[in-house]
Design a protein around this nucleic acid. Structure first.
Length: 879
DNA sequence: CCACCGTGCAA
DNA sequence: TATTGCACGGTGG
């Protein structure tokens, strides 16, 4: 096999990464962007170049021979920033864990080490790849040595070999040294010959080959060039010496030491955990531990199930995981059911009759269920008429409470974090994208290994997670709110929301027609046809062809968003048409077509997926489709709500919290005036307006109320004068005045905001009323913009998150009440501060009472919670 | 084919 | 240079 050596210039690549990536920080305040960039680059290089040998060269602090020759060498170069310096040692530690050799030689720069080793390796028959961000290294390119220079930050590598250099510079790699001798180099403070630049330098070298030869033949030169060279011969020769990378450092080179070895996987995972690089854990690949199997699964036949059931009843708990086919939600899709009690002996069954035999224990409220993504299991069992009861521990949800800012709660990430083990991830098992496989395509033994691992992980991380949950005072949040909520969300998803398909089809036709007409109008106003949906093409039409004033730019071109169009509407009649077009297209593509696509044809209902581990604040999110952003503000969009209807003999009951976030704020900060306003049931925006504008409540105009409303929003989001000014379209100074007025009138709010920011700085996190926690590393960033973002997150998260806590409590209590009373009415949707129940006609009064009572008493606070109720056959009517 | 961008909908 | 989300079509690697 070919021997391939990769040598990386460690300092150079770290530098590139540091400046190319945004500031990242782990929980201990260690900046990590350079390490992160370096590591992703390292993975990429190993993947793409498949080296047999690899090494990273670093500069040491000591002065090099160049400094001794020329004391101003690299003078004026700015010092390495602390945020970068602190990353050097951790990176070296990481390289050690990778078992990647480091080359460091006192008195020599990384360049020289690379030059020497690459020359040696080349002679030994290696194919050599040098990775660096420093173009000086191009002088090392040859037929067997490729120099790879980072481009565009870090995303690309530009390859130079001998021919490539010749093509690009019209000089050989060696002549690049002479060129630098003539031109000098500002960044290294190499003087060169004053007055000679790239153009002249290349011309001279093409004629004379080298500086030495040029000096010999100086008579052949004339004019000012001759004079400049003559006066600076020594300078040129010294500059060349400084620019020359040494290729013969007198050291012994043991190339075998550079062999790419197996990495120390556990140590890498520990370091990745420390750095917060969860996403990179999956990319570690090592030859040892290739065997990912932790435990084996055992098939259990129908006959043996009784024994398993007895054991489960004895232990009063079980760990389980269903594996389901994709397909209709309402069909019986389970292909495997895995069960364990100890994490070592893993049982699985495949037959429906076996599953049904387990119904008794699955539905038993006596037997605790531990799992991973239990909502999926709940839904899978529903099709078999099995209601999974007493779900008690879900490791994904536990991890979400432990760290809500994590990007993934996959079993493999959890295993890496808690057990230091790397197991096959879902993506590794199934692949991704169009060619992704399905569980049912895989061999049974592969699936058994995979799911046995998951069950083993559940058992082994549960106690550790419980300890954390206790330590963080989240037991109530976890066991009384999040865990019971799993069933509620599974239920809402399984039941779905009925839709009027015919009505949706009608809207589709109506919109299609409207869009066609608007298209025609727009083309004729523009004088040509183009793709109106393309911001790029639209930009050309508006700002180049029609010469309308450019209001705002995006990073890729002109901005054409609604805000910009609003400002342009009096400039040209095409603008209004485009706004209207955008509006209808949005409604048609996202809502009409989107919803039609996703209706379950069997139930005639929409089964949105409700996710409990997505948001950083504790809210629930909704996908496929997102039922939490159905239009309401404008009548034309609001019409869509007419397609969301109740079943026969049912009506929709819609209950929403009034001003829940401002009430939460009043409760948390204990501002007497704010609390009073709610106790007196005042219109909160009006009473804020009266305070901010210092007028009597009865003199508050609608403009004043609107401004106050924006201020209230601003307070919740973490206020900035700039943001408020943009929102209200007023000068920043004016906005600042409003904010100052607000804080003067509600001093406790200011106090609270200051406190929460201080706490976030001190602890690294903020909490909600139920001790939900969010880490905010941004707040200690040295970057002004990010730091300010951190402050706003610190101010907003406790408010948004506490409101999320409250409605989650309400959901669980409402759901339990409906069950207790054996009602036929169904909780089918939550939209952050709103619950929707599809209520049976005969139950309307009792359900109204349940909704209002349970929502309002969800949490006792120093202000009352208020719920508004309405009812109708469609969501449109019930709002 | 995929990732990203610009856009726009909700609380 | 206001918080949290999701989904669409276009674009370019």
């Amino acid at each position: 096999m070919n021997k391939r050596l990769v040598i990386i210039d460690g300092n150079s690549l770290m530098n590139r990464a540091f400046y190319a990536l945004p500031d990242l920080m782990n929980k201990e305040g260690l900046h990590t962007n350079a390490i992160y960039g370096f590591t992703t680059m390292l993975f990429k290089i190993i993947d793409n170049y498949n080296p047999t040998h690899i090494s990273v060269a670093f500069d040491l602090k000591a002065p090099t021979f160049r400094h001794k020759q020329y004391e101003d060498y690299k003078a004026g170069r700015k010092k390495m920033p602390d945020e970068l310096r602190m990353q050097v040692e951790p990176l070296k530690e990481l390289l050690d864990a990778f078992n990647i050799h480091r080359l460091e030689i006192e008195g020599f720069e990384a360049d020289d080490i690379i030059g020497t080793v690459s020359q040696f390796a080349e002679k030994e028959g290696f194919e050599v790849f040098i990775v660096t961000g420093d173009k000086d290294a191009i002088q090392l390119a040859s037929n067997n040595t490729k120099v790879l220079i980072t481009k565009k930050g870090l995303s690309e590598l530009e390859e130079y070999d001998y021919d490539e250099v010749l093509k690009k510079y019209e000089l050989t790699p060696f002549q690049l040294i002479d060129l630098k001798g003539l031109m000098g180099d500002k960044s290294d403070n190499i003087p060169g010959v004053p007055g000679i630049g790239e153009k002249t330098g290349i011309k001279l070298l093409k004629e004379f080959n080298s500086i030495e030869n040029l000096v010999q033949n100086i008579d052949k030169l004339k004019g000012s060039v001759k004079k400049k060279i003559e006066e600076n011969i020594d300078l040129a020769l010294m500059s060349k010496r400084l620019a020359t990378i040494v290729r013969n450092i007198p050291v012994e080179i043991n190339i075998d030491a550079l062999k790419l070895e197996d990495c120390d996987e556990e140590r890498i995972i520990k370091l990745f955990n420390k750095f917060g690089f969860n996403s990179l854990i999956g990319r570690i690949s090592s030859n040892k531990n290739k065997e990912n199997k932790i435990v084996n699964g055992k098939y259990i036949s129908f006959k043996e199930i009784d024994r398993l059931i007895e054991e489960i009843k004895n232990k009063k708990y079980m760990i389980l995981k269903t594996v389901s086919k994709e397909g209709e939600l309402l069909d019986e899709n389970i292909i495997y059911l895995f069960i364990t009690l100890d994490g070592e002996n893993i049982y699985y069954i495949k037959e429906k009759e076996s599953i049904l035999k387990l119904k008794e224990v699955l539905e038993s409220t006596d037997i605790k269920k531990y799992g991973y993504k239990l909502k999926e299991d709940y839904i899978s069992f529903r099709s078999y008429n099995i209601i999974l009861k007493n779900m008690n521990f879900d490791i994904a949800i536990a991890e979400y409470l432990i760290d809500a800012t994590s990007s993934s709660y996959s079993h493999d990430n959890i295993a890496a974090k808690y057990l230091g083990k790397k197991v096959v991830s879902k993506e590794e098992l199934l692949g991704k994208g169009k060619n992704a496989k399905k569980y049912e395509d895989l061999d049974e033994y592969v699936l058994i290994d995979y799911f046995s691992n998951i069950l083993n992980i559940i058992v082994n991380v549960k106690d550790k997670m419980e300890d954390k949950i206790r330590e963080y005072n989240m037991e109530k949040l976890f066991y009384d709110v999040e865990i019971p909520l799993i069933e509620v969300l599974g239920y809402m998803e399984f039941e779905g929301f009925k839709v009027d398909i015919e009505k949706l089809e009608e809207l589709k036709e109506e919109y299609t027609l409207l869009i066609a007409n608007l298209e025609k109008d727009i083309y004729s106003l523009a004088g040509e046809e183009f793709n109106i949906n393309s911001p790029k093409q639209l930009g050309v039409i508006l700002f180049e062809k029609l010469n309308l004033p450019i209001i705002k730019k995006t990073k890729t071109g002109y901005s054409t968003n609604a805000e910009v169009l609003e400002k342009l509407k009096n400039e040209h009649p095409i603008i209004e048409k485009i706004s209207e077009y955008r509006q209808i297209v949005k409604l048609k593509t996202t809502y009409v077509d989107g919803l039609l696509n996703i209706i379950n044809r069997k139930s005639g209902r929409i089964h949105s997926s409700f996710n409990q581990t997505i948001t950083t604040t504790g809210r629930i999110s909704s996908t496929e489709p997102n039922l939490q952003n159905i239009p309401v503000r404008l009548e034309i969009g609001r019409n869509l709500r007419k397609v969301f209807i109740s079943d026969e003999k049912h009506v929709l009951l819609d209950a929403d919290y009034s001003q829940i976030e401002l009430r939460v704020l009043a409760h948390i900060c204990k501002d007497e005036d704010l609390i009073d306003a709610f106790l007196r049931e005042e219109d909160i925006h009006t009473s804020t307006a009266a305070k901010v504008f210092d007028v009597d409540v009865k003199d508050v105009t609608s403009e004043m109320r609107n401004a106050a409303k924006a201020v209230n929003f601003g307070i919740i989001y973490g206020i900035s004068d700039f943001g408020l000014s943009k929102n209200l379209n007023i000068p920043v100074k004016k906005a600042k005045e409003y904010i100052d007025n607000y804080f003067n009138k509600y001093p406790k709010v200011r106090e609270y905001m200051d406190n929460v920011v201080d706490n976030a700085k001190k602890n690294g996190y903020v909490t909600t009323i139920l001790n939900r926690r969010r880490y905010i590393p941004e707040i200690n960033s040295k970057n002004f913009v990010i730091k300010n973002l951190g402050k706003r997150l610190a101010m907003n998260t406790p408010i948004q998150g506490s409101a999320a806590d409250i409605i989650k409590i309400a959901m669980v209590n409402v759901f339990n009440k409906l069950n207790e009373k054996k009602l036929r009415s169904k909780l089918i949707l939550q939209v952050h501060d709103e619950l929707i129940i599809e209520a049976h006609e005969s139950e309307v009064d009792i359900v109204k009472d349940i909704l209002k009572t349970e929502m309002e008493k969800a949490l006792q606070m120093s202000v009352p919670l208020k719920v508004d109720l309405s009812l109708g056959k469609s969501w449109y009517e019930a709002k």
